[in-house]
Lab assay of single mutants.
Amino acid sequence: MGFKLLSKLLVYLTASIMAIASPLAFSVDSSGEYPTVSEIPVGEVRLYQIADGVWSHIATQSFDGAVYPSNGLIVRDGDELLLIDTAWGAKNTAALLAEIEKQIGLPVTRAVSTHFHDDRVGGVDVLRAAGVATYASPSTRRLAEVEGNEIPTHSLEGLSSSGDAVRFGPVELFYPGAAHSTDNLIVYVPSASVLYGGCAIYELSRTSAGNVADADLAEWPTSIERIQQHYPEAQFVIPGHGLPGGLDLLKHTTNVVKAHTNRSVVE
């Protein structure tokens, strides 16, 4: 069995187990497998329904001669939608809004960016022009300005110390501490036991640490421990890039980060 097929099978099995364990909360999309990078042309966006009122959005972007996937989250909030992270750029984010209108038909009224990198804030200006209120932590807003990236308009308070959590509509926002970046936030959907790890969490097929220019490698494993301790009931975990899975993604990420750190020390 090929690795790609095995990865998709694991996603399907995880979703099936969740649907059985929580039949009222989960209505997993039966329309197909989780979209992969090879299936999404740059400039297009796919939506994948995880649970009743919960979707991931998947886009792709060219970077350094390669094409990478990027995940975000959409959560229903009454007759409105909360968006977590842009679709990595203005063109993708405009396509995301169009796809949401086509498939869901509810307005996106608020959006949260989970850290300051372009795959999370690139497209904020498109959201703002569409009347979406954009939010991020003060740290993310400051770092985005320093980096020359787009800056969300509103500040999220109460997320300055490791372990801080605040309720934001249908989700809980959690600051686990520094990891992929010093400002990275985690998003949890309690009604569906869905954990969105953003770039602080890796997919299972990833074996290298990737972009760690703004990471705190020493603190990252401790931050992941905080996530595990705060959300032990999480059933569906979405990484910032690639295929979702279960809580095993947290341990896998820790292993990859520690291996990278150990290699760096040896070198």
Rank of each mutant, 00 (worst) to 15 (best):
56 S>V: 11
99 E>Q: 15
187 V>G: 07
122 G>K: 13
240 G>D: 01
73 L>P: 01
35 P>L: 06
116 F>W: 14
88 W>Q: 04
8 K>M: 12
141 R>E: 06
223 S>R: 03
40 I>R: 06
231 Y>M: 15
160 S>H: 14
15 A>P: 05
36 T>Y: 15
49 Q>E: 05
135 Y>R: 01
57 H>D: 07
211 N>V: 11
239 P>S: 14
213 A>V: 12
131 G>M: 13
210 G>E: 08
6 L>C: 13
176 P>C: 12
50 I>G: 06
46 R>P: 07
107 P>T: 13
26 F>V: 11
211 N>F: 13
209 A>S: 12
137 S>T: 03
252 H>F: 15
153 T>M: 08
45 V>N: 15
17 I>K: 03
145 E>T: 08
168 F>S: 09
233 E>Y: 12
265 V>Y: 15
36 T>V: 11
7 S>I: 15
104 I>L: 10
196 Y>F: 03
236 F>Q: 15
100 I>G: 12
250 L>M: 03
145 E>G: 09
27 S>I: 10
252 H>D: 09
150 E>Q: 12
122 G>V: 07
151 I>K: 15
206 R>H: 15
44 E>V: 06
235 Q>S: 06
46 R>D: 15
184 N>L: 00
250 L>Y: 09
152 P>N: 04
6 L>V: 09
267 E>A: 13
159 L>V: 07
118 D>N: 02
213 A>F: 13
131 G>N: 15
99 E>V: 12
41 P>E: 11
259 A>H: 10
3 F>W: 12
249 L>D: 02
119 D>Y: 00
219 E>D: 14
168 F>C: 12
120 R>I: 02
141 R>S: 11
186 I>E: 01
209 A>I: 08
82 L>H: 05
149 N>V: 12
35 P>Q: 14
73 L>T: 04
108 V>T: 04
220 W>L: 12
173 L>N: 00
156 L>W: 12
262 N>L: 06
146 V>G: 08
217 L>V: 11
214 D>F: 04
106 L>R: 07
179 A>S: 03
38 S>V: 09
146 V>M: 12
122 G>E: 04
151 I>N: 04
80 E>W: 06
57 H>L: 03
230 H>R: 08
158 G>R: 07
256 V>N: 10
24 L>S: 08
2 G>Q: 07
131 G>V: 07
69 P>I: 04
265 V>M: 03
108 V>Y: 09
86 T>R: 01
109 T>A: 11
131 G>F: 15
144 A>S: 12
21 A>S: 06
128 R>D: 09
139 S>H: 08
148 G>M: 10
23 P>D: 11
193 S>V: 07
216 D>K: 12
138 P>I: 15
195 L>R: 00
101 E>S: 14
125 D>S: 04
1 M>Q: 07
243 L>R: 07
44 E>S: 10
18 M>S: 07
60 T>S: 05
35 P>W: 11
132 V>Y: 02
90 A>K: 05
